[in-house]
Computed example of a mutant assay.
Amino acid sequence: MRICTYQGLVVSLFTRNEHCPPHVHVGSGRWEARYRFSFWHNGVALWDVIPLAHAPSAALLEKLRQVIEEPVHVRRARQCWWLSRHTVCLDNQQWDARAEEIVSPNQYRVAAMDILWARYDPWHDRTLLQLVGQRGPLEIEL
């Protein structure tokens, strides 16, 4: 699914045989970069470039990251991921309420609570986390 374009490069989300973490692909015939995005914050990060020997300039990779991070584009990426994968990739994770962030269970934190389930609401661009011991889900407005 097409997310956006920049200088003729198409940023896409693949819908077949994809895996966590949530990410998009962009590239030319010589290289491909993957960028991770999240369902609990609005940041986007470069994941990798293959092959590294043919990677574009750091400036282009950063500009692509900025373009993908624009609210309209990251929201479209989330919507496409959720509608095609039906996961936000937060299984077996925890929510640290003090730091307001997702943490792995192997990073012990006193305030962290297990996530029972996580869902994305593509119409309102929010994530719902049902935490152990909580009556209702935590809503994260994105």
Rank of each mutant, 00 (worst) to 15 (best):
G27E: 03
P137H: 02
F14I: 04
W47L: 04
V110G: 11
S12R: 15
H73P: 08
C89Q: 05
D96K: 07
D48Y: 12
L9N: 04
H41V: 01
E101F: 12
I50P: 00
R126V: 02
L116G: 06
W95H: 08
V74R: 10
Q134I: 09
R135I: 03
R16I: 03
H23E: 02
R2K: 15
A112Y: 04
S84N: 14
W123K: 14
E139I: 12
R36K: 09
H73I: 00
Q7R: 13
D96L: 02
I3A: 03
R98G: 10
V67Q: 05
N42K: 10
E32G: 13
L9P: 08
K63M: 06
H73G: 09
V74L: 11
F39Y: 08
H25E: 13
G27T: 04
S12E: 15
R16K: 08
G8V: 01
G136R: 14
H124N: 14
P71I: 04
R16M: 06
L129G: 02
V132A: 10
D121E: 10
L13V: 09
F14H: 15
L90N: 08
V132G: 12
V103E: 01
G8F: 15
V72H: 12
A33V: 05
H73K: 06
A118W: 11
D48T: 06
A55G: 07
I68P: 02
A118K: 15
C89F: 12
G43M: 11
V103C: 04
L9H: 11
V88C: 13
H124V: 08
H41I: 00
E101H: 01
Q134G: 06
V110R: 15
L52Q: 10
G8S: 03
Y108W: 13
S84K: 09
E139A: 14
D96R: 04
V24A: 06
P122R: 10
D121S: 07
N42V: 13
D125S: 07
P71A: 03
W123E: 09
P51G: 03
L52T: 01
F14P: 06
Q7G: 01
P105M: 08
H19Y: 04
A58P: 03
W82Y: 11
V103D: 05
N42W: 10
W82F: 08
P51E: 04
L142I: 01
V24G: 00
Y120R: 07
W82D: 04
D125N: 13
P51R: 08
A99V: 00
R36V: 02
G136E: 12
P56A: 02
R75W: 06
I3S: 02
M1D: 14
Q130P: 06
S38N: 09
S104M: 09
H54N: 11
L64A: 02
L131T: 00
R85G: 04
R76G: 07
W40N: 14
I68R: 10
Q134C: 06
E62D: 15
R65V: 00
S38G: 01
K63N: 10
P105Q: 10
